[in-house]
């Protein structure tokens, strides 16, 4: 188990280091930063001044090492556009993003797991087909459209939930539902197929031959073995929700990290872009690591190998 843990941690660190390099390289590939910072009306002298002021005249490897050194201590420098510390920009927005992602994933799991299990138990029935259709709809529905529909129905007509902002937990319900909708199909299908495989296995026949209750057969013996791919995909989905919820953050006026990423990219605010990319990549890596560890808890064979 310790060896397993060490190996996974090492891989996670390597991934983060690679992302660090790419995050730096990508911002330098988008053209001369000094020109874009100085703006469209700058003279050649202005540009030169900007270049020196931001340290862009120094050799690239040196800039890289300096950035890495400061990033390691949590200092991502000053934002060019927001005129604030990048770390403060991000940490102000992180709670909103996390709250949204967790609400989204919770709703998705609460819907996808029971429906997936029911679907597997009634494979081929009308219930199964109806659930598949719902999953298909979820996959096909554009999230901005669903967001607007929910705002109109739940927000305007019924007045149950606030339409935008981040004042209370209720503000996160509607965007959470929209986020969940896009995650449900994959989770549901994996739960369904995993449960179908597990239920057809020899150890389930053994469990039945032992006279165990249906509840124990389905939830203890089958679900535990069907859970692994679901855990892995749930971690990836949470990663998506944390980093890729720009559209939903815009529709519901939630100013999270996704929204910040979009703003800083469009403004060529490269210290912020770098930091956001790095942060999201590290979160992703951590989530995958977490999923691997959870799977090792679920399956003793993983711990051994």
């Amino acid at each position: 188990m310790l060896e397993f843990l060490a190996r996974r941690l090492l891989v996670a660190l390597l991934v983060c280091a690679t992302v660090l390099t790419f995050a730096f390289a990508l911002t330098r590939l988008g053209g001369d930063l000094a020109i874009s910072i100085a703006g469209p009306n700058a003279t050649a002298a202005d540009i030169e001044q900007v270049r020196v002021a931001y340290g862009l005249d120094r050799p690239l490897p040196l800039q890289f090492l300096e950035w890495v050194g400061r990033a390691a201590t949590g200092d991502f420098g000053q934002s060019y556009f927001f005129k604030e510390k990048v770390s403060k920009l991000i940490f102000d927005r992180l709670p909103i993003t996390f709250a949204l992602g967790l609400v989204g994933l919770s709703i998705a799991l609460a819907v996808a797991l029971p429906l997936g299990i029911v679907s597997a138990l009634r494979e081929g029935s009308w219930t199964d087909r109806a659930i598949s259709i719902v999953a298909l709809l979820g996959q096909a529905m554009p999230s901005f459209w669903l967001g607007l529909v929910l705002m109109i129905t739940l927000g305007l007509h019924l007045g149950w939930l606030p339409i935008s902002g981040t004042g209370s937990w209720e503000h996160f319900v509607m965007p959470g539902i929209v986020l969940a909708f896009s995650a449900i199909p994959a989770l549901l299908r994996l739960t369904r197929s995993g449960m179908i495989d597990a239920l057809a296995s020899d150890y389930i026949r053994t469990a039945r031959a032992k006279g165990l209750s249906r509840r124990s057969i389905v939830l203890k013996h089958a679900a535990r073995n069907a859970a692994m791919p679901v855990v892995s995909i749930a971690a990836v989905q949470l990663g998506f929700m944390l980093g890729g919820s720009i559209v939903i953050e815009t529709v519901f006026a939630l100013h999270g990290v996704g929204f910040l990423a979009w703003e800083s990219i469009s403004k060529n605010d490269f210290p912020t872009v770098q930091a956001v990319v790095l942060l999201l990549a590290c979160i992703y890596t951590l989530l995958t690591l977490g999923a691997d560890l959870l799977n090792a808890v679920l399956d003793p064979r993983l711990r051994a190998s």
Binding site: D202, Y203, T206, R208, A209, K210, G211, R224, N225, P300
Partner: peptide, 22 residues
């Protein structure tokens, strides 16, 4: 299910897969 495993029991041909790996 009250009889199975209790008064009548069964073992199978596939010992490698008949036990739950988890």
């Amino acid at each position: 299910s009250r009889l199975r495993g209790n008064r009548m029991a069964m073992i199978f041909q596939e010992p490698m897969t008949s036990l739950n790996p988890a």
